[in-house]
Design a protein around this nucleic acid. Structure first.
Lengths: 340, 340
DNA sequence: TTGTACGCGTTATCAC
DNA sequence: GTGATAACGCGTACAA
């Protein structure tokens, strides 16, 4: 591929002049500039970013690591980040960690070797993360997304998961539910799920209701009805459940319906995240909507400010309760009908 | 960040020796190597990929462009590509085009400036694409995904959309359907949808059934029932519809149910793509499953072979019909009940 | 086995 | 306005 020197030769100028014709066009005489540009065109010259990066010590690249792209939450957030970053002249190197700590480390190491200008990470557990501990010793601009801003020492973009979990619970209580359970994927892997559960417990307690132990599913994004059956058929038999993410909720609704349960009549189901699809299902999914596009945008803007040497302390972004047909009033039970 | 020279100084060797300790460890005496590695450790030296790239004229980076990450099809494929690429030592620069031709051009240009070793693209319309035409004049390794291998001049990874469209139609015909319509997003934007429609037409004709004009929805991934109502209430009133992608099908099912239609009793609905979620809905989605993971893997492997100078001509990957509860036998109509 | 020296393509600092 | 030249960090042919 043609380089600047060949362009300069063809244009009959020095390499410095050719370079200036691109980077500081006003410093070069119009006629000369024309010659250079024409020569570049003829040779189909394309500036070499790698050389620019080496020279300028800045890659204009951002390293992104998400747990998985199979979950629309991350995919939709990534979409927003990509658009925002490109609008600011940055490119994204994208990786997936599968919530695996050793992969997290390798990925970040590789990105640092690539000399990304900054990192946007979603780690499994921010308060207990080998990668983050390592990163604390270096000082690359680094930002967390979705991970609650705990002791990690890094700024974080996302909603207030505790408040959101509480809001979801309040919503169900307002609808008249008193027996509410919570369903999650493999617990230990996600700090968000823990916070949402804490919010649930808090809201239950605030209404003098006793929170139930978390019901854990073996997979993050696929419900297993058998895990919930003991709870449903037990003495507690909840009238509503909250899932820690939408995919879990949607697949749970499917499993319930297939097993002959009516949603929401037999059981109300809430999701969490607010993926786009939820609106279009029947019943539509009642959920806590995270502003994914705003999160993606804020992540890039915040990171860019960090790259510029600032030390932002971003506030949590507002979540919104999206009502939906998957939640209704609880069926009248004998005990309730006795006490009007 | 420490560079090789400072490592070499600390180790008391020349820069060349330090470099060799990393790139060709066997060329350096064990003791010397130890010294270098220890010095590198002390200085927390991290090899500079940018310099390596400039020097080696190879970035080990692949440029990926997909229309959107809001559609799980692309997100799930990207997930597979990322894992496969990283396993081969490659990184992914990921971009989204929104099916916008001018963005497609800018994105590819930027990636070429970045000197990616190859490109994996999914364009709006491969047979009529400004980007692809431009790329024909250059010779970067470039591979299409999902786009049918037409006159574009580039190898393509994906299923045989025509055969798949026909298979979907056959499946419905086997179930006893004779009045089948097809629903798509904005037609002109997607060459895949056109091929699938062609397959539908072919299969209909093969059974002496008259194909219907395509029903177009205003959005790719969100059904608008109003667009289908004329068809449903018209003289043809299909007993089954095929959607050109799963999100369209899923949201259509939701809209139908909300409007009081039973699926599949009043109308059978087939999807296309086979996103993971479809299995877990109720009714589960009957669909043509594209092997997304295999497509992602094959894309990377094929591109790497192209980077190595080969000129592969990848065969279409096999699609699979995934049966599901969203398709059933057609309701008995008067005309049918008369002719046993 | 190790050191010297050059080049990858660019930008920036000097002179002219 | 323009041209020569030195970095940026690394790999490697060649010499020692």
């Amino acid at each position: 591929m043609a380089d600047l020197l060949s362009v300069a030769k063809l244009a009959g100028v020095s390499r410095a002049t050719a370079a200036r014709a691109f980077s500081n066009p006003e410093l070069v005489r119009a006629l000369t500039r024309e010659k250079v540009l024409k020569a570049a065109e003829q040779l189909s010259f394309r500036p070499n970013k790698v050389a620019q990066q080496l020279r300028s010590q800045s890659t204009q690249m951002i390293g992104v690591m998400v747990p998985s792209l199979d979950n629309p939450v991350f995919a939709e957030q990534l979409q927003a980040m990509e658009v925002t970053a490109r609008a600011s002249g940055y490119s994204l190197i994208v990786t997936t960690s599968e919530y695996d700590a050793s992969q997290e480390s390798e990925i970040v190491e590789e990105m640092l070797r690539q000399r990304v200008d900054g990192l946007v990470l979603t780690v499994a557990d921010a308060d207990n993360s080998a990668v983050l501990n390592k990163l604390l010793y270096e000082h690359p601009p680094c930002l967390l997304v979705y991970n609650p801003p705990g002791q990690s020492g890094f700024p974080s973009i996302g909603v207030d998961n505790l408040a959101a979990g509480a809001d979801a619970t309040h919503h169900l209580i307002e609808q008249g539910h008193t027996r509410i359970s919570m369903v999650a994927g493999p617990l230990l892997q996600s700090d968000r799920a823990r916070q949402r559960y804490a919010g649930y417990c808090q809201a239950m307690a605030a209404h003098d209701l006793i929170p139930r132990p978390l019901v854990e599913m073996p997979r993050h994004t696929q419900a297993n009805l058998a895990c919930l059956t003991p709870e449903l058929e037990g003495e507690y038999h909840p009238s509503a459940v909250i899932c820690t993410n939408d995919l879990l909720a949607i697949s749970l609704i499917g499993e319930l319906q297939r097993a002959g349960f009516a949603v929401p009549n037999d059981l109300s189901v809430m999701g969490f995240d607010g993926i786009a699809l939820g609106r279009h299902l029947y019943p539509s999914l009642c959920t806590i909507e995270q502003p994914r596009a705003a999160i993606g945008q804020a992540a890039i803007h915040t990171l860019l400010s960090m790259i510029n040497g600032e030390m932002p302390n971003p506030a949590p972004l507002p979540h919104v309760l999206r009502s939906g047909e998957s939640v209704g009033a609880p069926a009248i039970t004998p005990s309730l009908s006795i006490t009007p």
